[in-house]
Amino acid sequence: MMLLSEPLFCRILSSDIGKIPFVCRAFPIVCCTIFLLLQVLAAGVVCAYDITVVKSDNIRLYDDALEGFKNSCNCSVNVIDLSRKNGNNIVEDILDSSPDAVVAIGSKAYEAVKSLKKIRLFTMLVYPYDPAKEGNIWWVSIEIHPDKYLEAAAEILPHSRRIGLIINPALSGAYSRELLKAGKEKGLQIILKEVSSARDVPSALSSLSGKIDLLMMIPDTTVAAEDSVLSMVSFSYQNKIPLMTFSRKFLEMGALLSLEIDPYDIGSQTGDMAKTVFKNGEVKSAPVYYARKALLVINHKIAAKLGIHIPDSVRREAEVLR
């Protein structure tokens, strides 16, 4: 801008420039200057925050979430991948760089940074949820709101009023209570069986035989263990009871449908939450937010084997595996 200062600019234009009033001559230069200043300020606002993202591993689940966060947050992001870096000194490294916030993607990352007290900490894809930890931590849960599970079940299987649920209370007790509460509100009977290990699942299934119309599996590593899933699929076939899960990988093993999270959207949701927190200047954490987006996936072959008709309205909305 210095090069286009008024005397030089005037000399370049013409020798008659002196006849134009000074205000008119200065106007374009002032406009340009204001425009450039606005651009600089805008850029400063967009990238006003430096955020350190700690990623648990180099797998697609976390990569999608990171991508969603970056696109939503619009902030300067420094990524630490724990698959490449030892997490022992990570807190010291973060404190040295003093970012505005830290985002932990996955449980391993959360464990590595949870001791940070004075920096805002956003977490996503962390399992199991640690409700005791509050203060400077904002959560986007790995789970979908219980209502969405029950609504999907009601839409696809309208006659299923008795729902069987096997959980390990140590891992998914809080979420199952929310589910029970939501079922009760919708007039559904949820029969809960608690197990402490995968070995207990077959006996829990036996006790549910003849008592349920739908078997539900929520995120719980005890119940989602391979042996447990095989037992549940076997139970589903033998008793013609559809199995509803939370991930499409179980559909390949024989489940009817899954209502699963979208890691990219969880990242976006975390980014939106971070923006809101920065905007409002919040320093104390809010309640846990459930994953806002749920993807319905149906196994067409299993539906046919179980003699279940999937309504066209559902087919249009869902992803159908053939």
Partner: peptide, 12 residues
């Protein structure tokens, strides 16, 4: 030991 993290739930 079995992985009790989200990786066990969602990773392929």
């Amino acid at each position: 030991v079995p992985d009790n993290s989200e990786v066990a739930l969602y990773a392929d």
